[in-house]
């Protein structure tokens, strides 16, 4: 089990997500930040006595949320990638904590396409591929509607043609 000469690493999957995923992630971050910030700001505007202690966390959270909304989606767009081969589904996600997931076609049990309300707004879909393992699901988020539908069809076809009992 020698490592041989040179280094071995996982190569990036071939395909990037849809460009619109950046906007989708941004909206998600802004909404998530708005949930605590808006009530804090409103209360701060109304309650004079505690104004400083309400507006300070609101400002900090708003700044952090905006920074995350500006930077993270750009980084994520660079690292989130996916690829389908005849034998496996291969997905890379995460920026600070990268994660590569591989599920062989012969073990795939279900292929789901989901569009959340926000995703619909951006014309995006999420494809979830599950295997018999409770912890082996592979999700590809932020795909174009059409691409996702094609992908689901293709996956269903390949898994049907690949022998295997999925466990």
């Amino acid at each position: 089990m020698s490592t041989g000469e040179g280094t071995i690493r996982l190569r990036p999957p071939r395909n990037t997500l849809d460009r619109r995923a950046v906007g989708w992630w941004r909206t998600q971050w802004l909404l998530a930040a708005a949930v605590p910030v808006v009530p804090l700001a409103v209360l701060g505007a109304l309650i004079e006595a505690a104004r400083f202690w309400l507006l300070l966390p609101a400002a900090v959270l708003a700044a952090a949320g905006t920074a995350a909304a500006v930077l993270l989606p750009v980084w994520w767009f660079r690292t989130h990638r996916w690829e389908i081969t005849e034998d496996a589904v291969y997905v890379r996600t995460g920026f600070f904590r990268q994660e590569w997931r591989i599920a062989p076609m012969s073990r795939i049990q279900t292929v789901d396409t989901v569009r959340g309300p926000l995703e619909q707004l951006f014309g995006l879909s999420t494809v979830t591929v599950t295997t018999a393992s409770a912890k082996g699901a592979v999700r590809i988020e932020g795909l174009d509607h059409e691409v996702a539908a094609d992908l689901a069809r293709q996956l269903t076809r390949i898994t049907r043609d690949t022998p295997g009992d999925a466990t």
């Binding site: 600070f96 904590r97 062989p104 073990r107 295997t131």
Partner: peptide, 15 residues
């Protein structure tokens, strides 16, 4: 033969 997939994780610190 019972392995039905791999997940590889690497944080910035691990890298």
């Amino acid at each position: 033969a019972g392995v039905i997939g791999w997940t590889v994780r690497q944080s910035v610190f691990q890298r």
